[in-house]
């Protein structure tokens, strides 16, 4: 399940090459490596409980 948190933290505007343009980020090597979760692109599985517990205490 995608939480509000995950949906709201990807403000990339897709124009041509999806990573060239704005916004520019710092470059965490793990960013951009997406994981397929129930047919949707989401965060690594180990991150999910952490996020869900944050958003839905």
């Amino acid at each position: 399940m995608l939480t509000q948190h995950q949906l709201s933290t990807t403000p990339t505007i897709v124009l041509g090459h999806k990573h060239a343009g704005f916004p520019r980020d710092l470059g965490n090597p793990t960013v951009g490596k997406q994981y397929c979760h129930n047919g949707r692109m989401t965060l690594p599985p180990e991150r999910l409980p952490q996020i869900q517990s944050t958003v839905m205490p």
Binding site: H5, P23, L26, G27, N28, T30, V31
Partner: peptide, 14 residues
């Protein structure tokens, strides 16, 4: 400051 588990920062760069 935004709540997020992945250490990162960004700007619109404009």
């Amino acid at each position: 400051v935004r709540q997020h588990p992945t250490p990162n920062a960004y700007t619109l760069a404009m």
